[in-house]
Design a binder for these strands. Structure first.
Ligand SMILES: [Zn+2]
Length: 419
DNA sequence: CGAATTTGACCCGCGC
DNA sequence: GCGCGGGTCAAATTCG
């Protein structure tokens, strides 16, 4: 009984999630195409080459080279102190397990090693780059991974469910109490494939328990079911966007402003993407909430917001780049609504851009796939009872509905941040 | 009975 | 060098 309930609940959250995901994805994709076509393509190409095997249309999605980050809660406040989990007891035995990277992982996994590091499989490889992997040989491949290993994408969404369903299967491998947060953070690992390095951590916001922050890290080394596609591609594209952006502006960006934060808003929805190079590493945060805490935004002086929006601003990339440089000046730049006016000017080619973008997107297999995936998952998942039957209508309305649903869920988009 | 989760121990980088 | 804290491992336990 409960199970049923929970399941239903989960599905619901999933649906709304999917929707938002789609939005983001769309946004990110657009950006991609315009700006970084080159970068990503190259990478993908590379991958394809090497990873000849598998199959499936678009299997790997990478977060892009470099940098990691903690997603955690950007939220301010929550300064509660609490003693650490109280671990820290005397060591026992156990030495055999040396935490080497994946090399080790083979052992650890026991017999299930089938993925040994054949040259081809390299594309995904494990993600641990941390320390000890000094193994000489892997140099190259590893290097690439090493470079890219840290990108993370975190998604903030409202969800009752303990974890948003994204189409992947996850095995929980740990849980910890976060320092300033009463809610524990859970660590999951992808189990859809044996060696899949993808990990994610889930944590609930301290103040607003309804917000769930999910952070994805790594690249799937296996084909994803359509349902999983939406999230995966979204995150990957988001990451790529970030990376390409930062790259374009050069490392300078990162060096320049450790605290720098870039924001892109999707006015049409409440979702927005936040790119941050703050701290040690870059992070992309996709915010699907209505941002109940406008404070958060203000709290970081160095961030600025760019309307992506309804208008599909093509210049985004540039904006980013420049913004990076001028960010301080742009800090005040938020025009969710003014956008229109703003757009107008650059609008010159708007229609052009739009159509182009649309075309590109549509053309993009990933997008279509994702879209299809999302929809199908929504339909399929949402109506376990009736499942097949009338979908035509459903599908059509679904999109719309979802939209509303999501909106209503988070509702109050209308309310503007007073502060 | 195998698979997934729970949960305390362990590893390791970092700041003091 | 020590303690803290984030992350991971793996034995024990629960779930299906
Ligand atoms: Zn995976």
């Amino acid at each position: 009984m409960n199970a049923e309930n929970q399941r239903l609940r989960g599905m619901l959250s999933q649906v709304s999630n999917n929707y938002s995901t789609l939005q983001m994805q769309l946004m990110t994709l657009m950006q991609h195409q315009q700006q970084q076509s080159s970068t990503m393509i190259v990478e993908e190409d590379k991958k394809h080459h090497e990873a000849g095997g598998p199959v499936v249309p678009r299997q790997f999605m990478d977060l892009g080279p470099n940098a990691a980050t903690e997603t955690d809660e950007p939220s301010r406040s929550s300064s509660e102190e609490r003693t650490p989990s109280g671990s820290g007891s005397p060591p026992n035995h156990k030495n055999e397990t040396v935490p080497f990277d994946q090399n080790k992982s083979n052992y650890r996994d026991g017999k299930a090693i089938r993925r040994e590091e054949s040259p081809e499989s390299e594309s995904w490889v494990s993600n641990k780059v941390p320390k000890l992997m000094n193994t000489t040989n892997k140099s190259v491949e590893q290097a690439s991974e090493a470079t890219m290993r840290k990108a993370r994408v975190s998604v903030r969404a409202r969800s009752e469910a303990p974890m948003i369903t994204d189409g992947c299967q996850w095995r929980k491998y740990g849980q910890k109490m976060a320092k300033g947060n009463p809610c524990p953070r859970a660590y999951y690992r992808c189990t859809m494939a044996i060696g899949c390095p993808v990990r994610k951590q889930v944590q609930r916001c301290a103040e607003d328990r309804t917000i769930l922050i999910t952070t994805y890290e790594g690249t799937h080394n296996h084909p994803l079911p359509p349902a999983a596609m939406a999230m995966a591609s979204t995150t990957s594209s988001a990451a790529t966007m970030l990376l390409s952006g930062s790259m374009s502006s050069g490392d300078g960006l990162m060096n320049m402003n450790p605290n720098f934060l870039a924001r892109a808003i999707l006015p049409c929805s409440s979702s927005m993407a936040t790119i941050s190079a703050s701290a040690p590493f870059p992070t992309v945060t996709l915010d699907l909430t209505n941002t109940p805490n406008p404070l958060q935004i203000q709290r970081t002086p160095t961030q600025f917001q760019v309307p992506l929006a309804s208008g599909f601003t093509r210049p985004v990339p540039h904006v980013f780049g420049q913004a990076l440089h001028n960010q301080s000046k742009f800090s005040g730049l938020q025009l969710s609504q003014d956008m229109d006016s703003v757009q107008a000017p650059q609008n010159t080619s708007f229609s052009d851009t739009l159509s182009a973008a649309t075309a590109a997107i549509t053309a993009d297999p990933n997008f279509t796939a994702a879209l299809a995936a999302a929809i199908s998952s929504i339909i399929g998942g949402a109506q376990p009872n009736n499942n097949h039957a009338n979908n035509t209508t459903t599908s059509t309305s679904t999109t719309t509905n979802t939209n509303n649903t999501t909106t209503s869920n988070s509702n109050k988009i209308g309310s503007f941040p007073g502060n």
